[in-house]
């Protein structure tokens, strides 16, 4: 595949980089990334991956755009209020870069559908805001041997880690199981500073890009935490869980299942 003049110009700042170059840009154009959640995290991820020329982007979210989303979900605009988030996100991504394909999944990811959605992608982004979805995404990616980026944001704090099959712990190695429903507030109850999605989501996009071009070191086996008020980033080394229920030596989770959702604030969109 040769570059068109337009592609040469659009991706010129990538092509100049020795770590990306022509080969890396072609890898990006041939790659497929699934973003679960078109909210605070999914917004910057989608926009940067579209701009980078990730050739196929899948976006899954069951919600519609609400006015209260716009303080942080920068992929949607005021005119999008009421639209399915996946449609609004698709329009923005294609407006940034018509060179790519966007697949939309206007549904919640559940044990019954996630494997079928994940199977077509090279890398998965967890941009959800609740524990049942996070554990489901982890289990689905571990069982399907798909790398993924976990992230979570709340108030002035954010965290992320990267899972690559065979190269370090999964999310469940670190956080064995979800806390009881409503023991921990979701960000719709707790609040979140808008720029937090930009910081952590951009780091997720960076991890996806590095994985695709095969350069640098990924955040495997480590959890990065960010405290905006203290302006502090910390990297915490994570041990691999030999006894992990899904990726350990003798796994007890061999099929996907759904955890109970908290009654209030069930949004799949951070």
């Amino acid at each position: 595949m040769a570059f068109t003049n337009e592609q040469m110009e659009r991706y010129s700042r990538h092509i100049i980089l020795s770590e990306v170059g022509v080969k890396g840009q072609k890898k990006l154009l041939n790659s497929k990334v699934l973003i679960i959640g078109a909210g605070g995290l999914g917004a910057p991820v989608g926009m940067y991956l579209a701009a980078a020329g990730v050739g196929t982007i899948g976006i899954a979210d069951a919600d519609t755009v609400d006015l209260s989303n716009l303080q942080r979900q920068v992929i949607h605009t005021t005119a999008d209020v009421g639209k399915p988030k996946v449609e609004s996100a698709k329009e923005t991504m294609l407006a940034i870069n018509p060179d790519i394909t966007v697949n939309t999944y206007h549904e919640f990811v559940l044990a019954s559908n996630i494997a079928d959605i994940v199977k077509d992608y090279d890398f998965v982004i967890d941009g959800t805001d609740n524990f049942p979805a996070k554990f489901l995404i982890n289990d689905a990616c571990v069982l399907a041997k798909k790398p993924f980026s976990h992230a979570g944001i709340i108030r002035f704090q954010g965290q992320l880690m990267t899972y690559v099959p065979g190269e370090g712990p999964c999310y469940r190695c670190v956080f064995k199981s979800p806390p009881p429903p409503d023991a921990v507030p979701t960000c719709s109850q707790a609040g979140v500073i808008g720029a937090m999605g930009g910081v952590i989501g951009s780091l997720q996009a960076m991890e996806a890009i590095k994985y695709i071009i095969g350069k640098g070191e990924l955040l495997t086996g480590q959890l990065l935490t960010y405290d905006a008020l203290k302006m502090e980033f910390r990297k915490i080394k994570l041990p691999h869980g030999d006894h992990c229920a899904v990726c350990g030596k003798e796994p007890t989770i061999t099929e996907l299942f759904d955890y109970e959702q908290a009654v209030c604030g069930v949004n799949y969109d951070e």
């Binding site: 040469m8 110009e9 010129s12 092509i15 100049i16 170059g21 022509v22 080969k23």
Partner: peptide, 14 residues
Amino acid sequence: CPMTFVKAKIALEE
């Protein structure tokens, strides 16, 4: 610049 180098780099890639 910088398309000079980009174009040269693409030509070399081939």
